[in-house]
């Protein structure tokens, strides 16, 4: 069986199973622990603030952009870029079973390069900044690679660089599958758990009528 066929068949199935299993596992780990009932009389609305906080934390904290420009600018470009590439590229839409023509190929190319540049800047910041270097482990660098590879192979595939179409498509699919399969078991799981984290923080502060 060719690498491409493996990637499209068993490889994808394996990745999908691991992704679903792992994500359910991580969410269950969190939710199973539960929360005690708060016996203090509420002073504000927990639910509303939980929802608000899920969205308000997309904005930078006052003063922090200036203190950490690379993390902020790089973080925004990387996250938005990734989203644009994943759901804005025509063939991705077809694979995802969504209609629509997608964004122009040139734009996607540009955004991909920009996203990879932002990731490179973030990696450099992680290696240079004493705080980030101290709190980083193999998992942080590994997760970086997991996200960077699909971008890189996708770019090569679209522009037919280094290798012919078939091996590049196989590598691209495989890199996406590896990322999907490992997402729940790495810090990439924040793609799901951030909603819970922000929600809990908002609910806890909201009940007190405090800020979050």
């Amino acid at each position: 069986m060719s690498l491409l066929l493996w990637a499209k068949g068993p490889g994808f199935a394996l990745a999908a199973v691991l992704f679903l299993l792992g994500t359910a596992m991580r969410l269950a780990e969190i939710l199973r622990l539960g929360r005690g009932t708060d016996l203090a009389r509420p002073r504000g609305a927990a639910g509303g603030q939980a929802l608000r906080t899920v969205f308000s934390r997309f904005l930078p904290a006052p003063g922090l952009f200036a203190r950490s420009p690379v993390v902020h600018a790089g973080g925004y470009v990387f996250h938005i870029g990734l989203l644009v590439v994943v759901i804005g590229y025509g063939p991705h839409l077809a694979v995802l079973g969504i209609g629509g023509r997608g964004l122009p190929a040139g734009l996607i190319d540009g955004v991909t390069l920009l996203t990879m540049a932002a990731m490179t800047a973030l990696l450099a910041a992680r290696l240079r900044d004493p705080v980030k270097r101290l709190i980083s482990g193999p998992g942080d660098y590994g997760a970086w690679g997991l996200v960077f590879l699909p971008l890189a192979t996708g770019f090569l595939l679209v522009n037919r660089v280094l290798l012919p179409f078939e091996p590049l498509l196989a590598l691209h699919l495989l890199s996406v599958e590896v990322m999907l399969a490992l997402l729940p078991f790495t810090k990439l799981v924040h793609a799901f758990t951030f909603v819970l984290a922000r929600g809990y923080a908002g609910a806890i502060a909201g009940r007190k009528g405090a800020h979050s």
Partner: peptide, 16 residues
């Protein structure tokens, strides 16, 4: 898919 989700949820719930 359902089996994977169920197995994962059970695993996580037991661990935690």
């Amino acid at each position: 898919a359902a089996a994977a989700v169920a197995a994962g949820a059970a695993l996580g719930a037991v661990a935690a």
